[in-house]
Write a protein that binds this DNA or RNA. Sequence first.
DNA 1: GTCTATAGCGGGATAGAC
DNA 2: GTCTATCCCGCTATAGAC
Lengths: 231, 231
Amino acid sequence: MTKRNEQLTGDPAALVGWEPRRVAAVAPELPAGAAPPGTRGQILRTALGLFSEFGFHGTSIRLIASNVGINPATLYAHYSSKEQILADLVLLGHQELYDRLRRALGSADPSAPARLAALVRQHALIHTDYPLLAVVANSELHVLSAENAATALELRARCRGFLVDVLADGARSGEFRLVDLTLTAIAIGGLSMQIAHWFAPGNRYTPDQVADVYVRLALRMAGDTSHRKEN
Amino acid sequence: MTKRNEQLTGDPAALVGWEPRRVAAVAPELPAGAAPPGTRGQILRTALGLFSEFGFHGTSIRLIASNVGINPATLYAHYSSKEQILADLVLLGHQELYDRLRRALGSADPSAPARLAALVRQHALIHTDYPLLAVVANSELHVLSAENAATALELRARCRGFLVDVLADGARSGEFRLVDLTLTAIAIGGLSMQIAHWFAPGNRYTPDQVADVYVRLALRMAGDTSHRKEN
DNA sequence: GTCTATAGCGGGATAGAC
DNA sequence: GTCTATCCCGCTATAGAC
């Protein structure tokens, strides 16, 4: 039995989707340096775990406070409202994504396939590293007021711009054969987002393995002409 | 300017993601024959529209009732609880998906690429035809009790089985060159789900155009060896 | 089936002592 | 910063008349 055949006989149902949870049960972590210190950070991490599982409207101030181990009133010494906690999380998640993608483009080879691979790799890795943050940032953003969502939406637009630019460059140069620019960008942009819903440290894929697979899938979707055999 | 260049110069940001809505603003429709008649059906459709935009916990009984034009108490003559309304919607959405995929497989050519294309086409079309139902069935299922979610989860497992079987068959026969069975199945299975978040009738893609693109993307992801040039 | 009225509870947020 | 105590509101759901 080769490794390839092992993959073919593995049971996908064992990995994903059998349970009605929104995310795998992983510890709520925030990017190093991004989390505020002390109680404020503890509130943020606790809210992250609860929002990711029950949603913003399904999580009460009282529940957050009790999980932190403080009184509900104490929470308002650190955040002005429940929405402000979510706003901080959503912004933080989008900033981390934008920073990673920008750095990835900065250090990638200039060819379109190399830049696309770098973007997709980082997009996959942010979802394995911070799955709860990714779920909250993506699926609870819509409950924020327009003002609280504005900065995150601008960062998101820039990230989408990175992807569209790389795909368009590759199409012009002949490195890619796109089926359709807009829909391919949407599809590749959404590809890694599902990772947050099933990935957990210690399952049968490492983050790097997941990222490798997703990079190859994205290159196939873009119609990469440079390394077709390897894809 | 060729059509291909139009695609390349079209602005993707004009289509998707600039707004913090969960779904495009489309009328809340249910599959013909699946919706109950009279007030009961009206409640179901109204709840569908509200759940899709604000989520289950973000939607109150009072809001549903006022949008239907009835008293909140009247609602309980038709449904035993708010959760029961959601349970009906989630089940209905999963049944429609399962029925479509089963019919698609029944009428498809026996080759693996033809069956994969049929599955992906129907998966895409159900998201263009019933985007609100798809969003609710997918992203609010987790608030249901285990009993209320059980049937939908079983249907979902069968649908995933369809996809995994087709990919595994194609890999064995050499029609597909898979990067990884499990992750490809997850990726293709999630591919069309995003459609529900941006598609609206009357935008620049028809449902058939969307489905065509997604079928080609999926065949590329599977490493289809039979029609490589067309993909 | 639909209404009025309301029970009973839990929600977000605040006042003020320490 | 953290607590106790509480305000006030909106929530799901029910009782009972019509």
